[in-house]
Design a binder for these strands. Structure first.
Lengths: 247, 247
DNA sequence: TGTACATCAGTGAACGCGCGTTCACTGATGTAC
DNA sequence: TGTACATCAGTGAACGCGCGTTCACTGATGTAC
């Protein structure tokens, strides 16, 4: 048995450091060239090693990709969590806007890493289990905002504030099958959110990533030059659907 | 000067046919392997030619890619136009649902072609001008639905029908800069749509592609197994934002 | 504290593969008179 | 209608490149007694 804690062997420390160096170089190559151009040989070359040496650290190219995917999810997740944490807890609209703008900012700063996790899947690559948890960090923040919105009574300025969220009256009801999917999800998460709110959350999450992808992939280049303002507007509209706008 | 019309030389006819054969094989390879794996040599091999012969038809791999991109836009555009044309002209909700479901159906049937046009951009590839027009076919159908909705008085069953669309009261106003972008777009298109409707249209278009990408790229695999029903629900909610739901 | 052995990192060569693109050339098809 | 020339499709060889992965090996580091 290895003692857990401090006394790590020199070899282990060097190993960790080199592993980090490899992913670091890989991340830079990814940022510069995209995931398709990511090459073990190029990474080894830059580190002054022979290409086969990489195999002491990653059993294959796919495992290195997995590490980068997990890193990317964690990076954007951490950025979002940090931004969201700076908003006042009662300001649920502000928290939503912090979440969305932080996601967009990270995406614009790291387009290739964003494409790696939210773009077309890498052909021939199957994401393993380990990527699931990091992938849920942003949705978790979103759900926390919604549960807080349901719990915290509105104290934001306004003559007649109501307790709890004010979901937009559901013109279109949630279909039965979808209701069941969402109830199962709610059973797993146990957040106490009504199905309507869960549906709105999934839609909001889809729209957030959809909007960022559209901007990043250039589909509205000639349509909406002021994308920053458009994005903010769009996110506020979604906030209304989420019941985060009170008056 | 070459006579325009029928009397084409045998050589020209063979040339067109072979060009079609090349894009046909390329399209199949794309569907099976994805755009990254698309190889001129493999295509030539399958056609029983030498690899350099392809250069008589396409000056480079990128030009072949461009042809495939244009084809894909036209294919999905045609599918959508055809589906939308089958709905009653007055049934603007039905037309919107036909548009969206046709887009999704095409995407599920042609995931790699979908990824080529709506997924992460191919690294190192810059889309030329010729791809723009085919790319606007679906948005054009959408805008026609909206102008028709504004013009055609509602005749769908309902006790008190109002003329024109009933846009959801704009809780969140369109910001000034975005308003200007949309006005410029309106000047180019001259459809007579109010800015609020233009904004809703852009958002709807973004949401449509965002939702299909999310499903196709597997981001809601474990969340919403009944995606077909969820998609329909989502598109009806968007229809409400577009003012296509009347009572 | 010292020694014998096991573990591990990194080397260097090789396997087997595929790619886009260029170029000089041949032979068939089309065109102008 | 026939001939001389120009155009074009396709060939075959070559250039120059890069890739992931395996394997037997050396020498350094760590471990157990």
């Amino acid at each position: 048995m290895v003692q857990s804690g401090a006394p790590r062997t020199a070899r282990a420390r060097v190993r960790d450091e080199l592993t980090r160096e490899i992913t670091g170089v890989a991340r830079r190559h990814l940022a510069e060239q995209g995931s398709a151009a990511l090459s073990l040989r190029a990474i080894a070359r830059e580190l002054g090693m022979v290409s086969s040496a990489i195999y002491r650290y990653f059993p294959s190219r796919d495992d290195l990709l997995t590490a980068l995917i997990i890193d990317a999810y964690n990076a954007v997740g951490a950025a979002v969590e940090q931004a969201e944490a700076q908003a006042l807890r009662d300001d649920v609209l502000g928290r939503w806007l912090a979440l969305t703008h932080a996601t967009r900012r990270w995406a614009l700063a790291h387009p290739q890493e964003y494409a790696l996790i939210f773009g077309s899947p890498v052909p021939g690559y199957a994401a393993p289990q380990d990527t699931i948890d990091p992938a849920t960090r942003i949705p978790q923040v979103l759900l926390r905002i919604l549960t807080d919105a349901a719990a915290v009574p509105a104290t934001v300025p306004g003559p007649m504030t109501m307790p709890g969220p004010v979901p937009v009256p559901g013109l279109v009801p949630v279909p039965e099958k979808v209701r069941q999917d969402l109830l199962e999800l709610e059973e797993r998460l146990r957040l106490g959110l009504p199905v309507d709110q869960m549906a709105a959350a999934v839609m909001a999450w889809t729209q957030l990533i959809g909007s960022i992808s559209f901007e990043l992939f250039g589909h509205l280049k000639n349509v909406i030059p002021s994308y920053q303002e458009y994005f903010d507007f769009q996110m506020r509209r979604i906030a209304a659907d989420l019941g985060l706008l009170r008056q």
